[in-house]
């Protein structure tokens, strides 16, 4: 259910942004609102984690696991992208 809600907000924002005529004024407002809400989001995420003792106990091992997964993701995506790199360059991707 939360996924459906946030996805709906994303799509609504896309459609509204695309249809909006007064880009400058609302665009600046939305940009600032987005920046502020991102800051709030991180404080709230921290509060949720801090209030959960179980997660706090495992925070060190969480970091190691997260680092391993992200490093593997980066290496994997670089490997596949480079495999496709020659094909992409032949197609004149950046012209």
């Amino acid at each position: 259910m939360p996924i459906l809600i946030v996805t709906t907000f994303l799509i609504t924002g896309l459609i509204m942004g695309y249809c909006c005529k007064n880009v400058n004024i609302l665009g600046v407002f939305m940009s600032r609102l987005g920046a502020i809400s991102l800051l709030g989001l991180f404080i709230l995420l921290g509060i949720s984690v801090g209030a959960d003792i179980g997660v706090l106990k495992n925070i060190k091992s969480l970091g190691v696991r997260a680092l391993l997964i992200s490093a593997a993701s980066i290496l994997g995506s670089i490997a596949v992208t480079n495999l496709l790199g020659n094909v992409l360059r032949k197609g004149g991707m950046n012209k």
Partner: peptide, 9 residues
């Protein structure tokens, strides 16, 4: 919503 708006506009 703001991300969608910024991309859309």
């Amino acid at each position: 919503f703001t991300v969608g708006y910024e991309v859309g506009c």
